[in-house]
Design a protein around this nucleic acid. Sequence first.
DNA 1: CAAACGTGGCC
DNA 2: TGGCCAAGTTT
Length: 289
Amino acid sequence: MVMSVIELTVGWYRDHKRDLPWRHPEAGAWGVMVSEFMLQQTPVSRVLPVYELWLARWPKPGDLAAESSGEAVRAWGRLGYPRRALRLHAAATAIATGHGGVVPASYEELRSLPGIGDYTAAAVASFAYGRRHAVLDTNVRRVLARAYSGAQYPANTVSAAERELAKRILPEQASDAAAWAAASMELGALVCTAKAPRCEQCPVAALCKWRESGYPEHTGPARRGQSYAGTDRQCRGALLAVLRAAHIPVEAETLFAAWPDEAQRGRALQGLLTDGLAVRTADSRYRLP
DNA sequence: CAAACGTGGCC
DNA sequence: TGGCCAAGTTT
């Protein structure tokens, strides 16, 4: 019998999926949700240790909600994009107060929580609750682009056509759809990678349109490079690192010792205050919220 | 829609 | 060495 891309991918996943803690049954929906926040734009290898610490310290949403948001930021460590820690704390608070302490199962309820966009809502509903949703992350988008559209890379932003394709091929049965979501993400992460795809190991190589077309190279605009060295972002990171390490409020002088450029560090501190990642005390010192 | 938002590893 | 890339969201 002829197997489809979806069937082949799900079969491959059964034998090749990584043993990740948030895939264990005991992780629960909260574990899945925490992992999804941490994995936004962040590699699995860097998430693993922080995830373990978080789940041990805050096994339920209410446990995190009971702490200050600053503790969430501190425990976030160097994962990057620390506003995610703030939003995860805010989401936990919303779950504790408005959802009986239980991570909601519906896409709409999840989507309304801070820090949860289209991808994360679909992912939590699918992975934690087996709901039927098109889960479109960078991995899945690349797999679809190659296997179905014959392109090396998807466009910079998700297109309507892409969503339609994802919905069109989504298995009818919710459990099958959830299996496909997990499997296609894993395929994109391990085999159908951005740089050097392992087509020899790919379960759908024989059906891949990109391969069939002779691997045409990407046309169209390159992805915007994200510089970092010397940027305001790096400056913010340096200042926040000082606040994370300090357990009493620090002087502006102490904070500013972490960065040479005067104009930049002033901008960065204001940004941290505006974002709620730092607060000024009555005696004009600074600390985590 | 583009820009802002961290950080580290890899080729 | 430096650009690219990593399970995105918000404004």
